[in-house]
């Protein structure tokens, strides 16, 4: 009994020392991460204060550049979107639902003329941006193919709240034919489906310019440096006051682009808010539990880890 107690005290001491070491390591890492002094290579201020990793990366890049022939053609020089300060960007930031509501209006009045959203139905708007009655009224504005009548002729019926947003074209061929041979992609998942996500969608919608010298833009096409290749089959869609917002927000081009992008972000991730809210809960609880489990494991093992087996001879 006594010896076990001694062993346990030893184990606990060792444990304390390890904790100390771990804390020092964390502190050093934190200082490096926040740009403190400890891991810096040079002492001077400003951009000279880089981490060793930075120099490693520069050296590696130099080696690669030395061995490869770099060629840049105008068509490959695509413009990457800047990073915008979306109000839903933070780890604990919800989507702005007023913006989703405005964004739906932009989709409905502008984009839905060419783009389908087959994975979103009117009922999905309920409790997100619209009330149930509003969603029902929106659905009833559209007609869908219905049952055949008794003579076998196809009929149409009024939209129901459970219907997906309607496709503006009967099929892909018709969609291409109407759009210079380019298929307007379904927008349900487009935010997750493009590199740059919200930033890219916003940039595409606001990034129309006169083509630079030497870039040929055919009839019906438009120049947009954010689009890979630079020439897009979707001409500029948003102009000042393209829609009239019911909440009185001025419908500038960037306002509409921001709202429709927020709406499309929601469409791509309808679970966005729950993901962050519940993710926070889970991570908080499990990190506390992980610490407890770690401590408990050390405690249970301390007896075994700090024991000493001594052999001695009975004779002599």
């Amino acid at each position: 009994m006594r010896s076990v107690e001694v062993a346990e005290v030893k184990g606990l001491k060792k444990m304390a020392a390890n904790w100390q070491r771990a804390a020092n390591g964390l502190r050093a890492g934190y200082r490096w991460f926040t740009g403190g002094q400890s891991l810096r290579v040079t002492g001077s201020r400003g951009k000279a204060g880089r981490s060793p990793m930075f120099y490693g990366a520069v050296a590696a890049a130099g080696v690669v550049a030395g061995y490869s022939v770099v060629s840049v053609a105008a068509a490959e020089a695509e413009l990457h979107p800047p990073k915008y300060a979306w109000s839903h960007k933070g780890l604990l930031s919800a989507l702005d639902h007023q913006s989703i509501r405005r964004g739906y209006l932009v989709y409905k009045e502008v984009c839905s003329a060419c783009h389908s959203m087959q994975y979103i139905s009117f009922r999905n708007l309920v409790g997100v941006s619209h009330t149930e009655n509003e969603a029902r009224v929106l659905a009833e504005e559209y007609e869908y193919p219905g049952d055949n009548d008794e003579e076998g002729n196809p009929t149409t019926r009024q939209g129901k709240i459970s219907d997906a947003f309607p496709n503006p074209y009967p099929n892909d061929e018709a969609a291409k034919f109407a759009n210079n041979g380019a298929l307007p992609p379904d927008l349900s998942l487009v935010v997750l489906g493009r590199e740059g996500e919200d930033d890219y969608i916003f940039s595409i919608l606001t990034g129309y310019f006169d083509p630079p010298e030497g870039v040929e833009v055919r009839e019906g096409m438009a120049y947009n440096p954010y689009f890979p290749g630079g020439v897009i089959a979707m001409p500029q869609q948003l102009f000042l006051d393209s829609v009239e917002y019911e909440d009185g927000t001025p419908a500038t081009v960037s306002q509409m682009a921001k709202d429709v992008t927020t709406f499309l972000r929601w469409a791509s991730e309808p679970y966005h808010d729950d993901r962050k809210r519940i993710g926070f809960k889970v991570i908080m609880v499990t990190s506390v539990l992980a610490l407890v489990a770690f401590y408990w494991k050390r405690r249970v093992w301390s007896v075994l880890k700090s024991r000493k087996i001594v052999y001695y001879s009975k004779g002599s």
């Binding site: 109000s87 604990l92 930031s93 919800a94 007023q98 997100v128 809210r277 926070f280």
Partner: peptide, 17 residues
């Protein structure tokens, strides 16, 4: 945690509008 979430995001949630 839900009330914290609602406090952080006050004004943005459907519940607020």
């Amino acid at each position: 945690s839900d009330s914290m979430w609602e406090r952080i995001n006050r004004g943005k949630l459907w519940k607020d509008i």
